[in-house]
Write a protein that binds this DNA or RNA. Structure first.
Lengths: 336, 336
DNA sequence: AAATTAATCGGGAACGCTCCCGAAAATATT
DNA sequence: AATATTTTCGGGAGCGTTCCCGATTAATTT
C-alpha cells in the first residue's frame, strides 16, 4: 500500500541505492539527481520504513524511560521537570522516547518483562524509577542494554552509570541554615525511605544536627512520601511535638506542611521556619515563598540522556558518574 | 552478536519455522517439541528481533501519545492521571507508548515533523495536546494514521475520533449549585481560552447565570491558565471586585485561589465559596476540602486508548465519539 | 589525445522474522 | 492392510532498507 525505495527510484528514474543515498544525505550523489529525487519524495510524502532500516542498521534512535508507579511519581513536578530535560536532549539529537511507568498494582516482575520484551526496540534506558527494586536493576544490567540511572542506585554503585546531585551536603545546608538562624527544635519530614534519595536527605539532616551538637530527637522525624498529603499530616504531628523549624523532604511536602501551619494559625516564619528541597516552585510562587534547596532537575534529565546517547553511540564508555551541585535558595519561609 | 531464530532452531534441532511457531504460540506444534524449544529459548534468554517482526507483519504494537508543551501540561495532576489511564489499557493489551511532549520554544512545525518521521513505528496516536493548533491536526489527519483525541478538537468534529466529558453541563452544575446556595456574585477564573476545554467551562458558567437571570459582569471573569499561579492572581483580582463565590476553571486554579483567600483572611466558605473542576484531589486532601466537578480522567485515558487499539485492530471504524459524564462532588469549600 | 583519477550510480546480498505451501509422520478410517 | 485424514514440521519467498563492490561516466592530468 505505501511506497518503498524502489517505487520512488522508479518514479525518479534512478536506482534504489541512489534514493537511499539522498535520504541519508550522502555526499556521493550529484546535485541534480538529488533535487530530482527529493522532488518525488516530497510529492509523495515518502518516509522510509523504520523497521527495515532498524533491521539492517541495528539502530532505532529510540530510548526508553522508566518512571516509578505513576501515582507517587507523577504527582510532583519533579518528574515533569525531569522529562523536560530528557526531551531537551532527545529532541536535539533526534531520538524518541518510549515511556514506561509501572501500573499501580502491577507486580514488578511483569513490569520488567514488558520492558524487556520491547528491549530490541530501545537502544538504551533512562531509569528514574527510585522505587524499582534491586533485582530488577540486576536483570536489566544482565541484558547488557546501556542504561543511565537518575539518582544513585542502592547497589552496583561503581559499575552503573548515573547522574545525581550531592544530597547529603544539600540536605545539610538547609538544616545548618536553620540552626544558624537560631532554631533549635528542627523537625524533618522525610521522603520515601526505601530509596537512596530519601535516605540521603535524612542523613544530611542528621549530620547537620550532630555537627552542631544538637540532640537528635526521634520524635522530630516523621516519615513522609514526597507528597503534599504526607507533608500535611507530618506537619500536624510535628506541631504536637513542638518545633521551631522544619526541613521538608521536598517542596511538595513543604507545601503540605504550609497548609497545616496555616490551618493551625502558626506564623511562618515567626513561629516555625520552613525549608524544602528541589526548588520546583514555578507553580508555587505565592506567599510565603519557600526557602529551598535548588537542584538542577531539568539539567539532570538532559545530562543523563546525553550520557546515555554518548554511551549508545560509543563516544564514552561505562561506567560514568555525574555529580551535580545544589544550592540554597533563600526566600521568605525560613525567616532570613 | 545476538542469536536469531535460526540459531535457536539449530540448537533445538528443529527448523526456524517451528521456533517461530513456538514463539507465537501457534497450535500446530507438538507439546514435546514446544517444551524442547522453550527450554533453549529460556536458556539463552532469546527475544525475537522486533524490527524484523515489524517489517513483515506491519505491526509494531507501539502507539504514540502527544502531550502539550511540558511546563503547562505536566504541572497539573490532569496529565499524570490521563497517562495512568493510557497505561491501564496499553499494559493490558501489551502495547508500548512513545511519548511526545513539545519542547518549550520548539516550533510546532518541527514538533510534527519529528513525530511524523517516526510515524512508521507507531500504529496510532493519542492526542491530548490541547495547545496543538488546527493545522497540525490537519496534517496528522492527512497521514491516515489512526488517532484519538482526548477532548473534542476545534475542527473536524465529526470526522475525528475523540473522547471527552460533557463540560458545558459539567460547568453549569457547580455554578447552579452556588446559585442555589444563595450566592449572587459568582466569579470565574477561566482555563486557557484558546482551547475548547477552557471555552466549554466558560460557556457552562454563562449558561448557568443566564438561566437564573443573574447579571453577567465581565469584571467577574478573569483569565487563568489552569494552574495554581494564575488561580492565585485571579483570585486577588476577584477579591477587589467583591465576590461571594468563585468557580475555578480547574482544581489547580482553585488551590491557587485558596491561597489568595487565606492570605486575605477571607473565610471559606462563609465569606467566599469555592468550587473547582476535575477532582484531581488525591494530593490535596487537606482542609478545606474542595467541592469540585469530578470527571473520570483516568477512565478517559483508558477508553481513548482502548478505542485507538480497536481502531488499529480493525474492530471498529472511524469516527467514534465517546462522551463521559461528570458529577458534582460536594465537600467543604462550597458551604453546602 | 590518451591515461589516470574522481565522482556518480546500479545491483546483489544481507538483516531476522512471518507466512505460505507442500512434505513427512502420525493417527484414524474403511 | 491399505487408504484417507490429520497433525506436525521444513524450506522458500518476501518485507524494505543499508552497505559493499564494481561499473560507468565525468573530470583532471600528462
Amino acid at each position: 500500500m505505501s511506497l518503498n525505495l524502489e517505487d520512488i527510484a522508479k518514479l525518479a528514474g534512478v536506482s534504489r541505492s541512489t534514493v537511499s543515498r539522498v535520504i541519508n544525505d550522502r555526499s556521493d550523489v550529484s546535485e541534480s539527481t538529488r533535487k530530482k529525487v527529493m522532488r518525488i519524495i516530497d510529492e509523495h510524502n515518502f518516509r522510509p520504513n523504520l523497521a527495515a532500516r532498524t533491521l539492517v542498521t541495528q539502530r532505532s534512535k529510540v530510548i526508553g524511560t522508566l518512571l516509578p508507579q505513576s501515582p507517587t511519581a507523577l504527582s510532583s513536578l519533579y518528574f515533569p521537570n525531569l522529562l523536560e530535560g530528557i526531551g531537551d536532549t532527545t529532541h536535539q539529537r533526534d531520538y524518541a522516547t518510549l515511556l514506561w511507568w509501572g501500573q499501580s498494582g502491577e507486580e514488578e516482575q511483569r513490569f520488567t518483562k514488558r520492558i524487556l520484551q520491547k528491549n530490541q526496540l530501545m537502544e538504551g534506558l533512562i531509569i528514574a524509577a527510585h522505587t524499582l527494586d534491586n533485582s530488577l536493576i540486576q536483570r536489566i544490567f544482565e541484558t547488557k542494554i546501556p542504561f543511565v540511572m537518575v539518582e544513585r542506585p542502592a547497589i552496583f554503585n561503581d559499575q552503573i552509570n548515573y547522574v545525581t546531585v550531592d544530597k547529603v551536603a544539600g540536605a545539610k545546608t538547609p538544616v545548618e541554615h536553620l540552626i544558624n538562624l537560631g532554631r533549635r527544635r528542627i523537625g524533618h519530614i522525610t521522603g520515601i525511605l526505601v530509596n537512596v534519595d530519601g535516605m540521603d536527605r535524612l542523613t544530611g539532616y542528621r549530620n547537620a544536627l550532630e555537627r552542631h551538637n544538637l540532640p537528635m530527637d526521634p520524635d522530630l522525624i516523621v516519615e513522609g512520601h514526597f507528597n503534599q498529603k504526607f507533608g500535611y499530616l507530618g506537619m500536624k504531628q510535628l506541631l504536637k511535638q513542638g518545633v521551631d523549624a522544619v526541613f521538608a523532604g521536598n517542596d511538595d511536602s513543604a507545601v503540605g506542611a504550609l497548609q497545616a501551619l496555616r490551618e493551625a494559625r502558626v506564623r511562618i516564619p515567626a513561629d516555625v521556619a520552613l525549608v524544602g528541597f528541589d526548588d520546583v516552585t514555578s507553580a508555587l510562587d505565592f506567599a510565603p515563598q519557600l526557602t529551598t534547596i535548588h537542584q538542577p532537575i531539568r539539567q539532570k534529565g538532559a545530562l543523563a540522556t546525553a550520557l546515555l546517547l554518548d554511551l549508545i553511540e560509543g563516544k564514552v564508555k561505562s561506567p560514568q558518574h555525574i555529580l551535580l551541585p545544589t544550592h540554597l535558595v533563600i526566600r521568605q519561609s525560613c525567616g532570613a
